[in-house]
Design a protein around this nucleic acid. Structure first.
Length: 456
RNA sequence: GUGGUUGUAGCUCAGUUGGUUAGAGCACUAGUUUGUGGCACUAGGGGUCGCGGGUUCAAAUCCCGUCUUCCACCCCA
């Protein structure tokens, strides 16, 4: 064979069986989004780099896929070989693949601000790209399923998103835990320990607490220039025990001099009150070690993990107060959640949670013994399809064995066999593949015969 | 970006201290069976051993580079 074709690192092809399962996830999420009043939008695969750069932190900028300019992209550049990659890149590339769906959404909102009715609830299900090294649960191309409310500061939105998460994972039958925290509380803690400017390094360090030891986290903090005294102050906060209310009370005492921190506490108290009233079924908890990497979050932050599978977060989100401000539209607050469809797929595969039956496969196959027989079948094929039964006819007058094998491998449960004899008697033979039984019936009885049996 | 790991038929993998013509199972095609799938038997097709270079009389096997796979770190869905 010649050179084997291949696909880029970290990307995947999806065959029919996988797509049926993936669609089950997408359809479930989409139906819940609609149920909560979110409306669909799509944005382009490519954005201008000016839209994307600087929104995800330094690390995020490194992970952006950049698109080379079209045409002679070196035109007008003197001695390009003398420039390093950092200098050259902006000269030859002005577009990039989208890194998430939130930033393009913020851009969209600013651009169409006069046409949008606020608060705007939108959902968006599209692939995103990150030039990461692939590993377990990590791909370079993956789908995010986002729901965001923009133009409303109410904590009711946060509460509703948690309820939505509850709804989605209940339908997918995944047992999850939702961790909730608030960037304002984290900011308050940073103030409390005397390092208000080190919020990001502090949160990144303590976010690792569930993966590594407290010693390692403390070592990282000291390495980031946090004083020993501050690290000592941080310890009781990290290991705060009790119910959410008890934690809030303790925090309120510690953060009494931080206006931001107190604001965060009161936000969280209200959110937890709402959640109580909503009768959420899944487990949710205040987790002060939850940080989340994206820099644009300013209030509540969420992360969802599957309880029975070893996998990073399968869903995450939070509130961002000024994402549109970067694009020239200040003071518009939004909050959103993003489901990682590919990780959800991996979790469901690991736990065997996919339902066995699917509405996306063929239920009935007509065999084909020649033109005359095929023409006899075509009206029946049409009426089956009109009744909503997935049906197909084998397109060639191939050997019986081949057609049966086709049905077998496609897991088609019913095969209709029509030959000279059936045509002469205005009949058809219906074969049930699983039971390996067959019967010959008048052809006009096909549909009722099928619907009776398919129900059982 | 750092460290490790993997690559042989469509798929899963054997292949000895370098040594004839690189194998197996599954899958595929045809037949045993001209109107019956799964099971069995028979026969057949299919490989520049990831790619490039080096060592050697001789390389799937040893060395270097590169791409890819998977895993960990960084970071994240």
């Amino acid at each position: 064979m010649a050179q084997k074709p291949s696909i880029p690192k970290g990307t995947r092809d999806f065959g029919p069986e996988v797509m049926v399962k993936r669609n089950y996830i997408f359809d479930t999420i989409k139906s819940v989004f609609k149920l909560y009043g979110y409306q669909p939008i799509e944005t382009p695969t490519m954005e201008n780099l000016s839209t994307l750069l600087g929104k995800y932190g330094d690390e995020g900028d490194k992970l952006l896929f950049r698109v080379l300019n079209s045409g002679n992209f070196l035109a007008g550049i003197d001695q390009p070989e003398a420039l390093d990659a950092v200098r050259l890149s902006p000269m030859i590339s002005e577009k990039g693949l989208r890194y998430d769906l939130t930033v393009p959404f913020a851009r969209y909102v600013v651009q169409y601000r006069n046409e949008i009715v606020f608060p705007f609830k939108r959902y968006q299900i599209q692939p995103v790209w990150r030039a990461d090294r692939p590993q377990k649960g990590r791909y370079r191309e993956f789908y995010q399923c986002d729901a965001d409310v923009i133009g409303s500061e109410s904590l009711l939105n946060e509460a509703e998103l948690v309820q939505l998460v509850d709804d989605v994972f209940k339908r997918l039958n995944i047992s999850t835990i939702v961790k909730i925290n608030n960037r304002k509380i984290l900011a308050g803690i940073a103030e409390y320990i005397g390092h208000p400017d080190s919020l990001i390094p502090i949160t990144i360090a303590i976010d690792k607490l569930d993966k590594t030891s407290i010693e390692a986290v403390n070592a990282e903090l000291l390495g980031q220039g946090i004083s020993q005294q501050a690290v000592d102050l941080l310890q009781p906060v990290l290991f705060m025990k009790g119910t959410a209310d008890e934690k809030f009370n303790l925090l309120a005492g510690l953060l009494q001099n931080s206006e931001t921190g107190l604001k965060g506490i009161s936000e969280m108290r209200l959110l937890f009150d709402y959640l109580k009233a909503m009768d959420i079924e899944l487990t949710y908890e205040l987790d002060l070690t939850l940080a989340r990497g994206l820099n644009y979050y300013t209030g509540a932050i969420f992360e969802v993990k599957a309880r029975d599978a070893q996998m990073g977060s399968i869903c995450g989100g939070g509130r961002y107060d000024d994402l549109t401000g970067i694009f020239g539209m200040p003071d518009v607050s939004g909050v959103g959640i993003s489901f990682g469809a590919d990780r959800i797929y991996d979790v469901m595969t690991e736990l065997s949670l996919f339902p066995e039956t699917s509405s996306e496969s063929t239920a009935v196959l007509f065999t084909n013994f020649g033109d005359r027989e095929a023409k006899y079948c075509l009206p029946m094929l049409k009426s089956l399809r009109e009744s909503g039964i997935n049906a197909e006819i084998f397109p060639e007058a191939a050997k019986m064995k081949k057609q049966m094998k086709y049905a077998d491998q496609k897991h088609i449960p019913v095969v209709i066999i029509v030959g000279e004899e059936e045509i002469a008697n205005n009949q058809l033979t219906i074969k049930w593949m699983q039971k390996s039984e067959q019967e010959t019936i008048p052809k006009q009885e096909l549909i009722q015969h099928l619907s009776l049996s398919l129900e059982n």
